[in-house]
């Protein structure tokens, strides 16, 4: 009873708030290493480059290579396909064909549907995703279906006329 009289309520509230805040922050900080441990490990992050030898890929053919575990389509396009793609602006996500290739006969795109991550299957006109029916043209641009964006163009450069390095 006598103790209650001398209580500074504001001081007590302040101490309670500060203790609570520091406690919660401490718990959050202690969680961080565990959450972070689920991110890609260093050895996964270092698998960054993939070399592709283009000499064996005939016109009209596609080679699928793995880059960071993802499939990458390397397409040797025919002159007809190049001409058709140069005329089209794409569909839902318009982009000129020239901006998506370094050499018009070589199209390099990540073979993962931008909708939910399936690998599209090659067709005459481009690709068809088997999961939810997205259609892509021979420039990897989405024409119809649920995919929101065009197939991603990975960073790559020509190390020689018939060799590219992805990554």
């Amino acid at each position: 009873m006598a103790e209650d009289e001398g209580v500074d309520e504001k001081r007590r509230d302040f101490l309670l708030t500060v203790t609570g805040t520091v406690g919660v922050a401490g718990i959050a900080a202690a969680c961080w290493p565990f959450i972070s441990s689920m991110n890609p490990t260093l050895d996964v992050q270092t698998q960054s480059n993939t070399e592709v030898d283009l000499s064996g890929v005939a016109a009209g053919a596609t080679r699928t290579v793995a880059w960071r575990g993802k499939p990458v389509f390397v397409v040797h396009r025919t002159p007809q396909q190049i001409a058709a793609m140069a005329q089209s602006a794409g569909g839902k996500d318009p982009a000129p064909d020239q901006a998506r290739v370094q050499e018009p006969q070589w199209l390099v795109v990540v073979g993962i549907c931008t909708h939910l991550g399936c690998v599209p299957n090659k067709t005459e006109e481009g690709w068809l995703c088997p999961c939810h029916g997205s259609v892509f043209d021979n420039s990897g641009r989405v024409l119809q279906g649920p995919a929101p964006r065009n197939l991603e163009v990975p960073p790559y450069h020509f190390a020689a006329t018939d060799k590219i390095v992805i990554g």
């Binding site: 959450i35 689920m38 991110n39 890609p40 490990t41 996964v44 960071r68 575990g69 993802k70 993962i112 991550g117």
Partner: peptide
């Protein structure tokens, strides 16, 4: 997605977790 999988695609890290 990267955090959930622990890899750029579903991989060894994903299977283990």
């Amino acid at each position: 997605v990267l955090w959930l999988r622990g890899d750029f695609v579903v991989g060894d890290a994903t299977l283990n977790r």
